[in-house]
Design a protein around this nucleic acid. Structure first.
Lengths: 101, 101
DNA sequence: TTTATATATGAACACATCTGCATATATAAA
DNA sequence: TTTATATATGCAGATGTGTTCATATATAAA
């Protein structure tokens, strides 16, 4: 097929796959959904809603922060997590409005 | 946090994670990008563009079909693959228009 | 029928991911 | 200072994923 090629550059594909892989988990998608509703939430607040073990949640949050999906800042004893990039939310919208998902 | 809860139902989160996990691979994202450009492509055509081993490509395609991302139909010796759901494309658009990815 | 072409499948290994448990750290309160 | 609270981290077993190689199947051509 002449003139046909992948339009997205390799680096971008790899980066996208890397981030998507992190999003591709029910609990992490749930976290994203919660942070679309609240701007920022502490680990304890997330834990209360999600009802999961503390260290497991912490692992997920650290993971998402490492990939650039979430940001954090400390306030006293608490650490607040927030969506690093609002455009991530669009993905959730895509999922909601798709029969495949 | 009273009145805060995950809005997407658990089943949907699991299904979305399942499909996203499949998309979250550079080569498979590349395949999606190609099928946005061409409506349908045979395995050989994809192989020519992607320059990868036949069985590896076949595994990826089968995987994507199993998850409902791609559909197929045979025409003589060839098997054509196509995007099962155009709304999947929106995801690629989201990725392109996001600084996180 | 035999042979070539297109594609799929299964086994197996290397490697990554998920989770739980135990423990560490940072901050605030007593 | 000691203690409680909030959160992170390291390790390890179980499980999942990506890739390759060898082989199977389906169709068409000779």
């Amino acid at each position: 097929m002449s003139s046909l090629k992948v339009r997205v550059e390799q680096k971008k594909l790899e980066r996208a796959a890397y981030v998507l892989k992190c999003m591709a988990h029910p609990m992490r998608l749930g976290i994203i959904d919660l942070l679309e509703q609240r701007e920022r939430l502490t680990v304890s607040q997330l834990q209360e809603v999600l009802k999961i073990e503390q260290s497991l949640l912490s692992h997920h949050l650290t993971n998402m922060r490492d990939k650039g999906i979430l940001g954090t800042h400390r306030e006293g004893k608490n650490i607040y997590y927030f969506l690093a990039d609002k455009s991530i939310s669009n993905i959730i919208a895509c999922i909601q409005g798709s029969k495949t998902f």
